[in-house]
Design a protein around this nucleic acid. Structure first.
Length: 654
DNA sequence: TTAGGGTTAG
């Protein structure tokens, strides 16, 4: 009855809008089922739910409600528009239900994230009493749903059911099973399914390669030195199978380095080989995926992350079908390499040259360029653009905005985004705000927020702990910092990192507890790096403990023998205490190593004009005024009992 | 009808 009422209302929609439309004239001229199938396809392509509804009404009007193919297309169309209740209604109306139709509804539920409905329907199909039995298509869909949930127990249950029903011999079913286990984090099971497959195709290898990649390394940082994955990939070619566009798009992200952190990938050589392969088989690869932009994105990303942003740009310029992904990949590449102006220009260019709207990711990608280059005004413009496009509540964008506002000095705006725009906060939202407080030395605020975050059930991770410790360090909240450090290590799955330990040394050192800082270094579970000894150097200098300072310098120079800054700062320290012999010794050591200090440079942008300054630079037209102000600041610091560091001041004022 | 790949944030 309910179904009939619903259909009746749909018919009314159809009648009210249909009479003058072209569909009305078109339908009677050819077979009604053909025309309806055509319009249903058109409704999805043109994103018109109304057309789907009109077709549905017409289906009933011309008596085609039991037509299996039309019913299937209706189920698919309604699912596409997230109207799965209407998809269900279509199936309910069918008297002779087929597995085929049930699968379409099952897929509709799964694609809309309605997993409980998917599994309920799957159970009914498995009973094979009120609905037709499951087939291999059913299992492909349900394995995918289990993978999307990410629950390995659920995955194993449906796997068992698949084996019992004899469907785990089909290649596509096995491929979806490999992916399911991979998504559930059970890589061993994933590769076991692959090993035991009778007929592997290219997609089977792709699924296994992706799984293998997850096993071996973090994609973002490139692969570890082992060659196991690449040997595995060669196995695919040894079996006479060619890479397709999917294979390459899985492999290329593993070849990029992390130029931002000074790491160039060890796998760039493989990346170049893949690039050659793409050039050789370009047409084949692009005909499969329909566009060259897809592989282009991967190449741009790989080269940019390996420091070759110019190569990325050349690839970008030659793309025939540049879509928003390609533009965003290029923008992101420029930001990654510190070419902020180019990134900002591209954001404008994509709109006027290709008439493409930047999406959420484009904006997230370009925001760091505002923090480092365009400043608060540029950041606010991006924010305004996001508001106009109704994107300002997207969590990733909010997180990037919080970061941008914090780094541009506007903590109030950062907090406003955190409180009002960021409706669904994730761990990064909390972390961004805590790190913002850390950046501004607002330890108390960071402490309150950290506590609130824990009460909200958000798990802390190493990055937010570093942000929090940094805030404590700058605010002198030593006990609070130490307490939280111990708390997170004892209560969460967090292992101390070098950054966390550096914060601890910095915190203890700044508070004058130099011996405690040294004891901490001796007992810490990670190998001390330059940041650790650097923190101890600064703290020892601050508290004028020359013995500790020399010890810290000794380790620091041992670790970074080619870093001229360490020698210069040590020399300056000796000079400040008039230890001229030591100064000479340090300068001699530098000379022997052929080290020269590059002059430090800082810059500031005022009214879109960037002013840069080198050490002891007096070339600026306002140089006299600037140095007078520096002198005044130095004197003020002394008045407040803070030593600006005579050696450093000497260097600046010389 | 079924599986797999692209740009992002602390």
């Amino acid at each position: 009855m309910i179904a009939l009422l619903r259909i009746s209302s749909l018919t009314n929609i159809f009648k009210s809008t249909y009479t003058s439309s072209f569909i009305h004239n078109f339908v009677p001229t050819i077979d009604p089922s053909d025309s309806l199938l055509y319009f249903l396809l058109l409704s999805v392509e043109s994103q018109s739910l109304k057309l789907t509804q009109q077709c549905h009404a017409q289906v009933h009007r011309v008596g085609l409600s039991q037509h299996p193919l039309i019913a299937q297309k209706l189920i698919i169309s309604y699912s596409h528009f997230k109207h799965t209740d209407d998809s269900q209604l279509v199936l309910d109306t069918i008297l002779l239900k087929s597995t085929h139709l049930c699968n379409s509804l099952l897929n509709g539920f799964a694609k809309n994230g309605l997993f409980s409905k998917s599994f309920k329907l799957f159970r009914i199909m498995s009973d094979a009493t009120s609905l037709p039995p499951a087939d291999e298509f059913t299992f492909s869909i349900i394995f995918k749903a289990a993978g999307d949930i990410g629950d390995v127990l659920c995955g194993k249950m449906v796997h068992g059911s698949g084996i019992k029903n004899g469907f785990v011999l089909d290649t596509v079913v096995c491929n979806s099973l490999i992916t399911m286990y991979s998504k559930c984090g059970s890589i061993d099971n994933s590769l076991k399914v692959f090993d035991e497959m009778l007929h592997k195709n290219v997609s089977s290898w792709n699924a296994a390669i992706l799984s293998y990649a997850n096993l071996n390394s973090d994609k973002r940082n490139g692969f570890s030195d082992n060659n196991e994955l690449w040997e595995f990939v060669k196995g695919m070619q040894n079996e006479g199978l060619k890479f397709d566009a999917y294979t390459i798009s899985i492999l290329l992200p593993l070849c990029g380095g992390d130029v931002k952190n000074g790491n160039c990938s060890k796998n760039l050589g493989y990346g170049r080989e893949l690039h050659c392969y793409i050039v050789k088989y370009w047409l084949d690869l692009c005909s499969g995926s329909g566009s060259d932009a897809h592989l282009g994105c991967c190449l741009i990303d790989m080269y940019s992350k390996s420091g070759g942003v110019d190569i990325g740009r050349r690839i970008f310029d030659r793309l025939k079908n540049r879509n928003v992904f390609a533009w965003t990949a290029m923008i992101n590449g420029y930001v990654h390499c510190g070419h902020y102006n180019e990134a900002l220009c591209l954001l404008r260019e994509m709109q006027w040259r290709d008439q493409l709207e930047p999406n959420k990711v484009s904006l997230v990608s370009v925001l760091p360029a505002c923090s480092s280059f365009a400043g608060l005004t540029g950041g606010k413009q991006i924010h305004g653009f996001a508001i106009r496009r109704e994107l300002s509540h997207e969590v990733s964008l909010c997180n990037a905005l919080i970061d941008m506002y914090s780094k541009c000095g506007s903590l109030n705006n950062a907090r406003r985004v955190f409180d009002y725009d960021c409706i669904k906060k994730d761990a990064i939202s909390w972390s961004s705000m805590i790190c913002g407080y850390g950046l501004h030395g607002k330890g108390r605020e960071a402490l309150v927020l950290f506590d609130e975050m824990l009460q909200n059930g958000i798990q802390p991770d190493t990055i937010m702990v570093v942000g929090f410790l940094s805030a404590c360090c700058k605010s002198g909240l030593i006990n609070e910092g130490i307490k939280i450090y111990d708390y997170v290590l004892n209560n969460y799955d967090i292992k101390p990192t070098l950054e966390m330990c550096s914060c601890m040394v910095d915190m203890l050192g700044r508070s004058g507890q130099l011996d405690r800082a040294l004891d901490f270094i001796k007992s810490m579970p990670v190998e001390p790096g330059p940041s650790i000894w650097g923190a101890l150097v600064s703290a020892s200098a601050l508290h004028e403990n020359s013995e500790m300072r020399d010890l810290a310098y000794k380790f620091l120079i041992q670790m970074e023998p080619e870093n001229s800054s360490n020698y210069i700062s040590l020399s300056n320290q000796y000079a400040a205490s008039k230890q001229w012999d030591n100064v000479a010794e340090v300068r001699k050591a530098m000379k022997e190593r052929g080290l020269r200090k590059l002059p430090g440079c800082s810059w500031i942008t005022i009214h879109s004009v960037t002013h840069s300054f080198f050490v002891a630079d007096k070339s600026h037209p306002c140089s006299g005024m600037i140095y007078r102000m520096l002198n005044e600041l130095g004197l003020s610091m002394k008045l407040y009992g803070r030593n600006p560091g005579s050696a450093y001041m000497m260097e600046v004022l010389e």
